[in-house]
Design a protein around this nucleic acid. Structure first.
Lengths: 235, 235
DNA sequence: TAGTGGTCTAGACCACGGT
DNA sequence: CCGTGGTCTAGACCACTAG
């Protein structure tokens, strides 16, 4: 078996959710139905559903079923309030540097895991704007291992994480972050169209994913003057 | 059965970890040992361990066992890295203003719920230091409704949230936050012993609690130069 | 009452880690 | 090699939801 059985079922269900076969609000087949359909036991069916639950695709209701949830597009745990969510339509993303192979930088936002550095490094850089106002620069590093043809492919809906999910079946499983208030340096000031020395927020992130040896390392430099970083959290 | 069996095992193991019976780095009894000890099957033992895993108490190693991990304590979702955790012993808290009844301010970090404003407002203010270095000021507002004798009582272990939990059985259930990089104003600069105009991080928080009509509103002003704000998150 | 998810038993085989 | 955790089977009883 190349994959575990529950992982196969998980993948089937996940892709059907993503393709809209099971739409938001729909109920997945019950655990017993899954057992019959795929000739598995409930333990295995439940394990597959548990994975979907962990990743926020479904919500379980005792006595009713497993309901497809609206996926909380969580950029780790940070969402930009009045930005990708609230502003919605008005958000623009400018690619400053398309994904390309670079050597690993001397310093990453967080120390990398050992194995990651064995593969080449992919780097890309974007600028996020609300209307015409640039509010955040974003630099991303990650290992190219297992991401075949990543450089050639277009982002799904312009989203990096959606691309990982849809094309490579990789989900973000967690993140570690660090926040720092800094004077804007020359580059940030130029990109964000502010004066050098203006206070900006730097967010250092390490995203962990469902793929071992794949973490995403990012720096976000944010002009929080008009668009502070919002962070919604429900326990 | 008042509780599920796996929850009982979970509680036993958790309290032993918290009390240090199983120290950081130790291995818990193996799944098979747990089966014998508590007369359960592996499914149940694994379910108990899975809960501990999810909450970050242990780490599982194939072929070796379940190892007790260093716990990342999440206060809401913000932890001060190299501060209440890492620095540990060296953290000091200075009460700038003891809890007292004030009128509600014109502006809170987030808009208050309607009913809260009917009761008086309790306010207190603290300064957090690492050693002799002040790193964060903290201002808190909340409704006095139902918090009898709050002004007279001492904080449990110096912790506001522990006090709410132990004395009033109120738990924090979630939070909403907003981050902003600012120039330090006169008051913050004075308290944090930095120059006015230095970049600092302001965190606005609304903590929701298990008590309806009780939210905690806070401003944190942080000097992130030496001690950036860390934020550990596992999905 | 029928169907759902939540818990639990009693086995089995496998892959990994260290001896 | 043995013990560990990872996966899986084939059942069982329970609590919850809804017609």
């Amino acid at each position: 078996m190349a994959q575990t059985r529950y992982r196969q079922i998980y993948n089937i269900l996940k892709s059907r959710i993503q393709q809209g076969t099971y739409a938001i609000g729909d109920y997945l087949p019950s655990e017993n139905e899954l057992c019959k359909t795929y000739k598995i036991t409930r333990t295995t069916a439940r394990k597959a559903l548990d994975e979907l639950l962990k990743e926020g695709f479904i919500e379980k209701q005792h006595g009713k079923g497993s309901k497809v949830k609206e996926r909380r597009q969580s950029l780790g745990l940070l969402t930009v309030k009045g930005f990708s969510e609230a502003v919605g339509e008005n958000v623009r993303t400018i690619i400053l540097q398309k994904p390309q192979i670079l050597s690993w930088p001397k310093e990453l936002p967080f120390p990398a895991d050992e194995n990651e550095l064995n593969a080449p490094c992919i780097y890309f850089e974007r600028l996020r704007c609300v209307g015409d106002v640039p509010v955040m620069t974003e630099s991303n590093w990650f290992s190219a291992h297992g991401l075949n043809r990543f450089l050639d492919c277009e982002f799904v809906d312009g989203s990096f994480f959606k691309t990982l999910s849809r094309k490579y079946l990789i989900e973000v499983t967690g993140s570690e972050q660090e926040l720092r208030a800094l004077f804007a340096d020359e580059k940030s000031a130029y990109l964000l169209k502010i004066e050098q020395g203006f206070p900006i927020l730097r967010i250092s992130i390490k995203f962990t994913t469902s793929k071992p040896d794949l973490n995403i390392y990012s720096y976000l430099y944010c002009n929080t003057e008009k668009y502070p970083i919002g962070n919604i959290y429900t326990h």
